[in-house]
């Protein structure tokens, strides 16, 4: 697997993603500064978490106009995988690569904790190594992860199996208490209709090694690797 991590002013999970890909997955990985207009020749583009442009205006709203984003869109249009994590997800939403938008967490609080995700679609580039409905223990850390879309879009996401991860309880049940931010339909991660762009609020790069308390996130990297090989 040959990957790059896009770095914006205010990105702060770029090094974690780089570490997970290089040291854990033994992949080739490079950083790409957002002012670049061309991507290196890579299979996977990672748009990492953080607070690009200080979250000013709206999360991801300014980063989406960075020169590199045109190349990221082109990469996505060519069918190659793109994963946006946390702020990366927010940037992909603002870019229009994924449908919907993010609102402030229902609690108005920044929520930083481990949550359980249920894998709703295992026939994707990002989840092919997972068993159906597999539970993943992966942390979230965000103030604006309250996913919103209109009911028409939601229906499209549901019928198209584009909802990849939902927030659930430790036992895998969907309920109000296990939805940490108020996301519609407990959505934690979605893919585009072509299936090659994933956006997720939880941080797989922070759960890719035993020493971090969970290595469930590693299954996502392994799935991408399996797809690419």
């Amino acid at each position: 697997m040959n990957a790059c991590v896009v770095v914006f002013p205010g990105s702060n999970c770029d090094e974690d993603c780089w570490h997970a890909l290089r040291d854990v997955m033994k992949s080739k990985v490079t950083y790409v500064w957002h002012k670049e207009s061309v991507l290196p020749k890579v299979d996977l583009v990672v748009v990492p978490g953080g607070f690009s442009y200080g979250d000013y205006l709206r999360t991801g709203a300014i980063a989406r106009f960075s020169p590199i984003m045109k190349a990221v869109v082109k990469h996505a249009e060519s069918g190659l995988p793109v994963i946006g994590i946390c702020n990366g997800f927010q940037i992909l939403l603002e870019t229009g690569l994924l449908p919907g938008a993010m609102l402030r967490n229902r609690s108005l609080r920044f929520v930083c904790k481990h949550v359980y995700l249920r894998t709703e679609n295992v026939k994707t580039i990002f989840t092919n190594r997972l068993k159906p409905r597999k539970l993943l223990n992966i942390p979230i850390a965000h103030g604006e992860g309250n996913y919103y879309c209109d009911s028409e879009t939601l229906k499209r996401l549901q019928t198209g199996n584009q909802i990849v991860f939902r927030y659930v309880s430790e036992k895998g049940a969907i309920n109000e208490g296990s939805n940490p931010n108020g996301s519609v339909d407990s959505i934690a991660g979605i893919i585009n209709d072509k299936g090659n762009v994933l956006g997720m609020m939880p941080h797989p790069e922070r759960a890719s090694e035993d020493i971090l308390g969970s290595y469930d996130g590693r299954l996502i990297w392994e799935s991408i690797q399996t797809h690419l090989n």
Partner: peptide, 8 residues
């Protein structure tokens, strides 16, 4: 183009 996100 920038100031408003028409989705929300």
């Amino acid at each position: 183009k920038l100031l408003v996100n028409p989705v929300i």
